[in-house]
Amino acid sequence: MNIGTAAAHSGVPAKTIRYYESVGLIQPADRTASGYRVYGEQDVETLRFVQRARSLGFSVEDVGSLLALWRDRSRTSAEVKALARHRVEDIDRKITELTEMRETLLHLMERCKGDERPECPILQGLAGKTA
């Protein structure tokens, strides 16, 4: 199948497939005599795997590690779990950061009257001044 069909079956845009090939995340596709990429079912399965891992926020580098583990039948599940644990820790850190950002903005909003006057504690807070 061509790249458009592989993209449709995998849910990965053709441009992204080319990118994944260029950074070595996936193997370059075989080519026809006229230079068109040709993909098989295994390629589509790999692209689906990559797409699911990326949708969970794994970096391209981590997806490469996950692909290697997926292909390695002698791997241990502990190796896979360690990567997943690291990703969960990253998510937890981001949740904490987002919660702190939300609380700061809510605090600034509470101090802002939101009326016709130019004084604005939100802008003062963003400027680093005590609101």
Rank of each mutant, 00 (worst) to 15 (best):
M1N: 04
M1P: 09
M1G: 12
I3Y: 00
I3M: 01
A6L: 02
A7Q: 02
A7M: 02
S10N: 00
G11W: 02
P13W: 08
P13L: 07
A14F: 01
K15E: 15
T16C: 11
I17F: 13
R18S: 14
R18Q: 14
E21N: 09
E21M: 09
S22I: 02
S22Q: 09
S22H: 03
V23Q: 08
G24N: 05
L25N: 08
I26G: 02
I26H: 09
P28F: 12
D30F: 11
T32F: 01
A33L: 15
S34W: 02
G35R: 05
Y36G: 06
R37S: 10
R37M: 08
G40Y: 11
E41A: 12
Q42C: 11
Q42T: 13
Q42D: 15
D43K: 03
E45S: 12
L47W: 05
L47I: 13
F49D: 14
V50A: 08
Q51V: 01
R54W: 10
R54I: 04
S55A: 15
L56V: 04
S59L: 06
E61Y: 02
E61P: 03
D62N: 10
D62E: 12
S65G: 07
A68T: 12
L69K: 00
L69V: 01
S74C: 05
R75E: 09
T76I: 00
A78G: 03
A78D: 04
E79D: 14
V80Q: 06
A82P: 08
H86D: 07
V88Y: 06
E89A: 12
D92Q: 15
R93V: 01
R93N: 06
K94Q: 15
I95S: 03
I95D: 02
T96R: 13
T99M: 11
E100T: 15
L105G: 08
L108Y: 11
L108I: 10
E110T: 11
E110G: 12
E110Q: 14
R111I: 03
R111T: 09
R111C: 11
D115K: 07
R117P: 01
P118I: 14
C120K: 03
C120G: 05
C120E: 03
I122K: 04
I122C: 08
L123E: 06
L126A: 07
K129S: 11
A131V: 15
